[in-house]
């Protein structure tokens, strides 16, 4: 039964660790920042796009609408970005993109045509 004890100890430590990690997040926090209270300098340039955040209930990290925040910003820029991303296949940081491939290593593809490289450039690299 000694071996059963080792399993018990392991299960207890495992359970406590996981429970600890799960209860620790999300941290119980305040509502969103209130710039008026924090800002010692009276300001009229409080960003309008934050209005959405300001009136949201609960802790921002726990909110499901993280994607929503993106729309809170300049819509034009956002749309442009979206087009840009979809041309490349995905937007950075989106879960759907997690399986995205790593870039091609040097030597397996030509350097990008960003105007910096001479045509037909072959990068040489050396680590000492």
């Amino acid at each position: 039964m000694k071996s059963a004890l080792s399993l018990l100890a392991l299960t207890a430590a495992l359970g406590l660790s996981v429970a600890g990690a799960l209860t620790a997040a999300p941290i119980t926090g305040p509502g969103p920042a209130s710039p008026q209270a924090a800002d010692p300098v009276p300001s009229t340039t409080t960003p309008l796009q934050l209005a959405d955040n300001d009136h949201d209930d609960g802790w921002f990290f726990a909110r499901k609408g993280a994607r929503h925040d993106r729309h809170a910003h300049d819509d034009d820029e956002e749309d442009e970005d979206d087009d840009d991303y979809s041309a490349r296949g995905c937007a950075a940081g989106q879960p759907a993109c997690a399986l995205n491939l790593n870039p091609a290593p040097a030597g397996t593809a030509t350097p990008p045509a960003n105007g910096l490289f001479a045509p037909g450039a072959k990068p040489a690299v050396q680590v000492n």
């Binding site: 870039p103 990008p112 037909g120 680590v127």
Partner: peptide, 23 residues
Amino acid sequence: QVDGITGASVGSGRELKITLDLQ
């Protein structure tokens, strides 16, 4: 943006020498 110009990470204390044909 880094297709074809990507290599290994560089260790502590090491020296990385890259030679590129640039405009």
